[in-house]
Design a protein around this nucleic acid. Sequence first.
DNA 1: AATTATCACAACCGCAACTAT
DNA 2: TATAGTTGCGGTTGTGATAAT
Length: 261
Amino acid sequence: MEYTSSVHMIMRSLSDCGSSVANGSEEDMEIRKGPWTEEEDSALLNHITTYGLKRSGKSCRLRWLNYLRPNVRRGNITLEEQLLILDLHSRWGNRWSKIAEQLPGRTDNEIKNYWRTRVVKQAKQLKCDVNSKQFRDALRYVWMPRLMEQIQAQGRSTMCVSQAREIVNPVTSVSMASSKSCSSFSGCEQFQASSSVSDSCVSYYSLMGSGSGGGSSERAEKGATSSSTPFEPENGFAGADFWTDENIWFLQQQLADDDHL
DNA sequence: AATTATCACAACCGCAACTAT
DNA sequence: TATAGTTGCGGTTGTGATAAT
């Protein structure tokens, strides 16, 4: 499948299920730019006077963007989201805001935190540089296919079986190849010949219905008072975490095999 | 039960890019 | 075009919750 068509698929999917999340009422509002008017200044002064907010504008803005903005989605990063983050990061690097655009309701900060607290941590655990080719290849050829297998194994997909076969099969074969026959993660022709993992990830994700993932609000679970978002998952994998000991062990084995060959 | 370590998430900071005048 | 103000981005640090001792 062509990469561009995959992107279109995912875009369409996102717009179908998450347009209100991505754009929402913010776009409906007229957003003014440029210097402040006297009226705006006085409105702001009124608010500050009334509520006594001792916060910088920058802090307020950040709070709004990452927390208070309507439709900000909170809670565990789903397996599908993890997969998409890994895939997009492999393409775009630390372009967090760009990556966040593809995950409706998720903020760049959240994705950045996910990367730093999970992925970078695992890289350290494996004694790899997170930017090293070895680690990137391991992500691409071992973890991502394995992640997809786990998504598949969850068996809670909304896609029809034929769609699933069509999309997942190439990736499954990648996983098999990577675990045994591939002497180098980066050198395996199989990965380049057919549809790439990336393409499959994107199309798989789009078929899964990208907006359907996500867990219930973590803060809500902890009894915090923040209001829940209207963007609640219907069939996502709440609480799912790919970075289990088992998977870390699996990856360590792959890296060890790779070293020996 | 108290203390310490670790983790995940939220917030801050500095800088660059953008926009209006 | 130059400049000031505004916004966006990414790296870093702070904080609260939880686990471990």
